[in-house]
């Protein structure tokens, strides 16, 4: 069991609002910018339409003197995982994790086709909504995928701290009691699209139990809620946090933040957050949180 907690969370519907989001999350964590040992972000060049789009985001940090920093080309939930591991390894005590994406900059429905196999699928330009419809029909789901939740703009940030650093500024840190992630095979015909083995496996690795009080699931499309509840073994007595939209590359991190807020506010003693990445829930991360270490 680790000794690492979420002690701050902030989000904005504007992907450009990193300066404000950092101010807010640091203030909620009671830390100054220079007290952050490690910074880690998640974003995608293809959302912005240019190489190295994450580089200019570093400007919002004010990285002079230089900082210890890293970046994943994934939803920032996986940046949180990297930061968690960094703290667990004893290489940092505090970390600020952020994600940002401007889903509205391009035609997301087409852009996401580039996540599929580059030889046999992507050259056909399958749009993300149609792929989701293929999945929904296999599940006999009534819900017709719509563009509504395909992906929005946004930025989120979470502050992590270890041990005493977590309790110093927070009465009720949201302790990370388990975190794990896995990926499934990419082939659309190579896996049962009505299941998410990687989510099930990650939940087992994270030690998720069905008696968890609150769940925040990252589901770009409505039918995926049902799929994931089943995959994670969660029932109807779990309180599900409302879907707040799929902010590109920060939506998964925001689920972790939202679940942590339930703990930090005292509204729940245990919570689980889930993040997804890739076409049709190919890659999944599960993070369990609790009010006690």
């Amino acid at each position: 069991m680790s000794d690492i907690a979420v002690i701050g969370f902030a989000r904005s519907p504007r992907s450009e609002a990193l300066v404000e989001v950092f101010d807010e999350v640091l203030s909620s964590a009671g830390l100054g910018r220079r007290e952050i040992d490690f910074w880690c972000s998640g974003s995608s060049d293809y959302l912005a339409g240019r190489a190295f789009s994450f580089v200019s985001a570093v400007d919002a940090i004010g990285a002079v003197p230089p900082i210890s920093e890293s970046h994943v080309e994934m939803d920032a939930a996986w940046a949180l995982y990297e930061a968690y591991v960094k703290i667990l390894a004893g290489e940092a005590e505090t970390a600020l994790v952020y994600g940002f994406g401007k889903g509205s900059a391009g035609d997301l429905n087409r852009v996401l086709a580039l996540q599929t196999d580059p030889y046999t699928v992507a050259p056909l330009w399958p749009d993300a909504i149609s792929l989701a419809t293929l999945q929904a029909r296999l599940m006999s789901a009534e819900l017709r995928p719509s563009e509504q939740n395909l992906g929005t703009d946004g930025a989120s940030a979470v502050v992590l701290a270890a041990g005493d650093r977590a309790t110093r500024n927070r009465d009720r840190p949201a302790w990370i009691t388990g975190i794990a992630h896995r990926v499934d095979p990419p082939g659309l015909g190579e896996r049962d699209l009505t299941t998410a083995p990687s989510a099930t496996g990650a939940a087992a690795d994270a030690g998720l139990t069905p008696d968890v009080e609150v769940a925040a699931l990252h589901t770009p499309f409505a039918h995926q809620q049902l799929l994931l509840r089943r995959a994670l073994g969660l029932g109807d007595d779990v309180r599900y946090l409302p879907d707040t939209g799929n902010a590109m590359f920060s939506g998964g991190l925001a689920r972790i933040g939202a679940a942590a807020e339930e703990i930090m506010s005292g509204r729940a003693r245990t919570a689980v957050a889930h993040a997804t990445s890739g076409p049709l829930l190919q890659q999944n991360l599960v993070c369990t949180l609790g009010g006690t270490r």
Partner: peptide, 18 residues
Amino acid sequence: LALAQSLGAAGKPLLRVH
């Protein structure tokens, strides 16, 4: 994502750094 299976990562944790 598309390479996951060929890299032996299917069913395992896979991180992408940039």
